[in-house]
Design a protein around this nucleic acid. Structure first.
Lengths: 334, 334
DNA sequence: CCTGAAAATGGTTACGTAACCATTTTGTTA
DNA sequence: TAACAAAATGGTTACGTAACCATTTTCAGG
């Protein structure tokens, strides 16, 4: 491989001058500059970013630990994060975590110096948090957060759950099922609590059997669907903790011959891009601002890396209802 | 930052021995091994992957140039690629290309030594191909290919276009629009030619005005929709070059009050995951094998990197129809 | 034409690791 | 116990770059 030494020899200058041509061209006389550039051209020289990283003690690389892309929330956030980072000269090492391989994922990341870590996959009381803190690497979470998180970008999850439940209650639904979990994750916990709070304020009682604390895997969601089918009183509405869950449940209901929303109202939370689609038209709750959580987080992280800014980044975005066509007023059909 | 020298000093051994403990533990006596491991533990030492890369002349990193995730094809392929690579100890640097920033993207990648490149975004006659060849870095394309590509994984695009068109023709549609492009891309070119071939074999004529060669941006697709609305003879069926286009067009039609498939049949190509969803149920053409193109490509690339295998990888997967609910027989309504 | 400061360039080093070769230690066999 | 091979460990180097300090060149002003 051709190195800056080869270029130096070819151009008849020192390696130092070659480095200078690329990094401080103003310090080099024009003719010398040209000689070197010609040599670079002729030899097809490309500087080795790895070697540069070693000497400069920075990698211009950020590790992203995202949830799986079959959750459309992460489609949106991954897109923003990768594009924004690349535009700002950072590489993104992507990892998709299913919350099981998470330890390996972190070890993998620690092995390779990165300038920062941006992630969603963390539990409220995750033990990995201490390792992250000790590593000294700037990191930020988006969507979810840890109980002692310094830097995070989230939506107001409790408000979101509250708005979703309130919307269904205002449409006269009372037999409303909750689907989502696990509650070790800040998102699900907040949304769940908001959901319950709405019932409490309205004075409507929630039965234990209406609450399904599940993970988001297709299998378990299908099992949940089957359980709901066996309920003595079938729900007239369903509050899903995420759009991904809502869309999946909708699939099961429609496949089973139900009409949405006539037979069952469904609401999600996240307002992912695909929920807008005319075939889906999911009523949902999402952040009011047009800038997504991923985008906010990566902007903050890069700022912190650049400015060695040690200030806390704690953003909780306010949310609102996006009313579409999967929820409808409950009609008495007695 | 704590280095292997620090560990060596702490453990009272040489740096060489520390390195050996981690890479060739069998060459180290048990007590020494333990001393070093204890030191590593005590100092919280993590080897620097960058330094290792420099001396070993490999990075364990693969660059991925994917199309945008709003095309669900790339959701599926990116997931397989990232997961498979990570499981095999490779990091993935992700880049989303919109075919405009492509030159910058390539320069960005060349600046940082990677062990391989896996990409979709390339034109049939892309000039960047020569730079890729000259770089000596193993690379493979999936989905699309270059006219002189050595390594690629694709579907049989012509067969796909042929099957899609044949399906619509067999349902007695004749006024069928084609939407997709540009033809500089192998996928669109092949599918388009297959589409035309089906008409030719059936002896049905295609009018120029039925053929819409567009890019896949939402804006341009909407313009295309408007043009189709103004056609003297409105189409009864639509063959989209990709599922992404099909799903987008479906959105426009439904939003405008049309029913799919009663008012217009729509077929796509790719068989992306989301097309299976009960709310979408897109009839489409996709590879018969359950293993996706991205997965095939990353497996081949990693094999090539590991074995320095210089054999050509040229895979063209056969395709079949996935009949769902967006296509229906044309009824005479005169 | 000389002087001195500024401009331009060069030499050397460190970054953290693994490869390579050299040296010391261990243990076996005669 | 001597001899010697094998096992264990150490010293030095290279990887390719930018930082740092040293040296040479240039050129303005007297």
């Amino acid at each position: 491989m051709v190195s800056s030494k080869d270029v130096a020899k070819y151009a008849g200058v020192s390696q130092t001058t070659v480095s200078r041509v690329l990094n401080y061209p103003d310090l080099v006389k024009r003719p010398t500059y040209k000689k070197v550039m010609d040599a670079i051209e002729a030899l097809n020289y490309i500087p080795d970013g790895n070697a540069r990283s070693l000497v400069q003690q920075k990698t211009d690389t950020i590790a992203l630990i995202s949830g799986p892309l079959y959750n459309p929330f992460f489609v949106d956030s991954t897109t923003s994060i990768v594009n924004y980072a690349n535009q700002n000269g950072f590489k993104i090492n992507v990892h998709f975590s299913n919350d099981e391989n998470i330890t390996e994922t972190y070890n993998f990341i620690f092995e390779n110096k990165v300038d920062g870590i941006i992630m969603s996959s963390i539990l409220l009381e995750d033990p990995v948090f201490i390792k992250l803190e000790n590593s000294g690497i700037p990191f930020i979470t988006y969507n979810r957060k840890h109980k002692s998180n310094k830097n995070f970008v989230e939506m107001d999850n409790e408000q979101a759950g509250f708005i979703a439940a309130s919307h269904l209650l205002s449409l006269n639904h009372e037999n409303i099922c909750w689907v989502g979990g696990p509650l070790e994750m800040s998102t699900f916990k907040g949304r769940y609590e908001g959901f319950l709070k709405a019932f409490q304020e309205k004075g409507v009682t929630v039965k234990q059997e209406q609450l399904f604390i599940t993970d988001s895997s297709k299998d378990e969601l299908y099992q949940t669907f089957l359980k709901m089918e066996k309920l003595s009183e079938k729900p007239t509405a369903l509050c899903a903790a995420t759009d991904a869950i809502a869309i999946e449940m909708m699939d099961f209901y429609i496949s089973a011959g139900y009409r949405v929303p006539e037979d069952i109202s469904i609401i999600g939370i996240d307002n992912v891009e695909i929920s807008r689609h005319a075939s889906i038209n999911l009523t949902t709750v999402g952040i009011a601002s047009p800038v997504g959580l991923g985008q906010l987080a990566i902007e903050s992280l890069i700022k912190e890396i650049r400015e060695k800014n040690k200030a806390c980044i704690q953003i909780t975005e306010t949310v609102r209802l996006f009313e579409r066509k999967t929820t409808i007023e409950k009609r008495g059909w007695v």
